[in-house]
């Protein structure tokens, strides 16, 4: 029985993960290494990687900052009434429940060129939708819960004693945060960062809706893969996909390592 279970597990693993990945790999190299390489060094692909890089960098930085702040607020700020706290807590999880495409649509409907807010911003030279800011917003929406949900339980677990001890020893809130709170939550934050990076890199639906997928402008690596498939350029699509998958595997390995450190 045990043997059967193990075999089935391996089979599922093989069918769902290894074979598709092998397929991507073989297709990427079906015209040899030169085909793979030229697909990656194509200017359009390079630009898409650049956009993805900026997207991941900006989203990770913003999400880390606001995620940690919101977690501190929800766990530590006793001044907020319980109802507001419960409401905020529920809203944090919203992106988990809402499809990314809907998330993208919400941004489009709020800030699109035909809306009051969008038109107003555009008049002042700020383009949000069909530009990088919109893509960052959409990815932020999708990744928002990841940091908060990682940091909140850690904050709850360490309690307020050590922070209060620091206060009674004369330390202000800034010093207390960096010397006392941060060392306790840093592995949780790193875990959140890794999750955010992985999610931001792989995000497709929300970004596709708000970016308009304009070549050499708002095209990210994932939306480029989609376009290459549409154009039957399977070698290019699979080469890009292989690089993205490889990067994700590295990121997830980091995650495993961070998880182990967090448990120490």
């Amino acid at each position: 029985m045990k043997k059967l279970n193990i075999t089935v597990t391996y089979l599922v693993f093989l069918l769902l993960l290894i074979i598709p990945l092998g397929q991507v790999l073989s297709s990427a190299f079906s015209t040899g290494f030169s085909g793979f390489w030229s697909a990656l060094t194509d200017p359009q692909a390079l630009h898409a990687f650049l956009i993805s890089g900026i997207l991941v960098g900006a989203v990770t930085a913003l999400n880390t900052l606001f995620g940690v702040l919101l977690a501190m607020l929800l766990v530590r700020e006793t001044g907020i009434s319980r109802r507001i706290r419960q409401f905020l807590n529920a809203v944090v999880d919203l992106p988990f429940a809402v499809s990314p495409i809907i998330g993208g649509l919400m941004i489009l409907l709020l800030l699109g060129p035909h809306t009051a807010l969008g038109a107003f911003l555009e008049d002042h030279g700020v383009k949000i939708v069909f530009a990088l800011p919109g893509m960052i917003l959409a990815t932020l929406f999708v990744t928002f819960p990841l940091m908060v949900r990682e940091v909140m339980p850690v904050l709850q677990e360490i309690g307020t004693d050590q922070e209060e001890a620091a206060y009674t020893l004369g330390a202000g809130s800034w010093r207390t945060f960096w010397r006392v709170t941060w060392p306790s939550i840093r592995w949780g934050v790193l875990y959140g960062v890794v999750l955010t990076v992985a999610r931001a890199l792989g995000e497709f639906g929300a970004v596709l809706v708000v970016s308009g997928n304009i070549i050499n402008k708002t095209q990210s690596a994932t939306t480029l893969v989609y376009q290459q498939v549409e154009n039957f350029n399977f070698v290019a699509a699979n080469s890009l996909a292989f690089v993205l998958a490889g990067f994700s595997i590295v990121v997830l390995m980091t995650l495993e390592w961070a998880k182990r450190r967090k448990e120490v």
Binding site: D161, E164, A165, A166, Y167, G172, V180
Partner: peptide, 16 residues
């Protein structure tokens, strides 16, 4: 608390 000139020993010590 920072400006009261006190020392506080917590129940569970709260060592850093």
């Amino acid at each position: 608390p920072q400006e009261r000139g006190i020392g506080f020993v917590f129940q569970n010590y709260a060592l850093f």
